[in-house]
Computed example of a mutant assay.
Amino acid sequence: MKYWKVFSVLFFFNLCIDILLSNIEHLYYYRYITKPLITISLLLVFYFNSKLKPKKERLSVIIALVFLLIGDIYIIGYHHIFQLWIAMIFFLAANILYAAVFYRSAHFNIDRSIPFIATATITSLTLLYFIYDRLNSFFIPATLYMMVILNMSQAAYLRNKVVNDQSYYAIFLGSLFFLASQSAVAIVKFYSNFPFQQIIIMSCYGLSQYLIIYGLLIEKKKFRRFQKRFN
């Protein structure tokens, strides 16, 4: 991939700046520059390095990143519940697109799926237990959002043996980081603050998107029937 090492240095430098700004109240609104740059930079590097990928798959990822960008802009310093609703809708759509792309390289195996489904169910029920009393009108959207993220992680999990190992582990780990960041956001919004919350949320979010895009760019499908999908 062209300039990936240079991009990585700049990406994580910007991520560190954004995390720093998120913890300094009077500089917080500079995040309208640094946080969108996280997604914009990934969008640009994916666009210029994915020209050989199937058109539909490439377009799906580009649209997913655009949706994440819009969601990021709406959620920075939101003052009205309407902004949070809009951000959730765009993040939800991005996750659906990611899942669609991952499922194109997934092999469904019920024996392999059961441990993941069991772990995901326990994790989601535990989270809902803590935030249930404060969700109010957000209960159904939050539950749906959680199911979509878990579905995206399952799609990433089921890519094993279908794609090269480096791509598989990068994307699966990225999906788990994304799940962690969104779970942390839910705890902050609907339960309680916790130490180093902004550092944890943004570190997990930045790493998740970096690993997902990296995994997609280095992806090599092992079987012909998967190579033909999404053309």
Rank of each mutant, 00 (worst) to 15 (best):
S50W: 04
K5M: 14
R224A: 14
F82Y: 15
S60H: 06
I63C: 05
S203L: 15
L44G: 13
A186S: 12
Q166G: 09
R134D: 15
I73S: 14
Y132M: 11
T121C: 01
A186P: 04
L150C: 13
L10Q: 09
L27S: 11
L15Y: 04
S8F: 08
N23T: 12
C16M: 08
H80K: 13
Y191N: 04
S137P: 10
P36T: 04
N109P: 06
D18C: 03
N231D: 13
H80L: 12
I149K: 01
F139S: 12
F178A: 03
Q197P: 05
I24G: 06
I17M: 07
I114S: 04
H26D: 15
T34A: 08
A156K: 00
G206P: 10
S124K: 04
A87R: 00
Y157Q: 02
L59A: 14
F194T: 00
S181I: 01
S167N: 03
K5H: 15
F67R: 00
Y98A: 04
K5V: 13
M1D: 07
N95E: 10
A170Y: 13
I114G: 04
F11T: 01
G174L: 03
Y169W: 14
L59C: 09
I40N: 00
T123N: 12
F138G: 02
F11Y: 09
M1G: 13
P195D: 07
C16L: 12
H107E: 15
L176H: 00
L125I: 14
N136W: 06
V6A: 05
L176N: 02
L135A: 02
F102G: 04
D18G: 10
I213S: 01
I218W: 08
L27D: 11
F48E: 09
I218K: 10
L68K: 12
I114A: 12
R58V: 03
D111Q: 15
A155Q: 15
A170I: 06
F13E: 10
Q83G: 12
Y169F: 10
Y78A: 05
I75W: 01
A156V: 13
I187R: 01
T121A: 10
A180W: 07
I76V: 11
P36H: 04
Y98H: 09
F12H: 07
L68E: 01
L69E: 06
I81Q: 07
A155L: 06
S22G: 08
L20S: 07
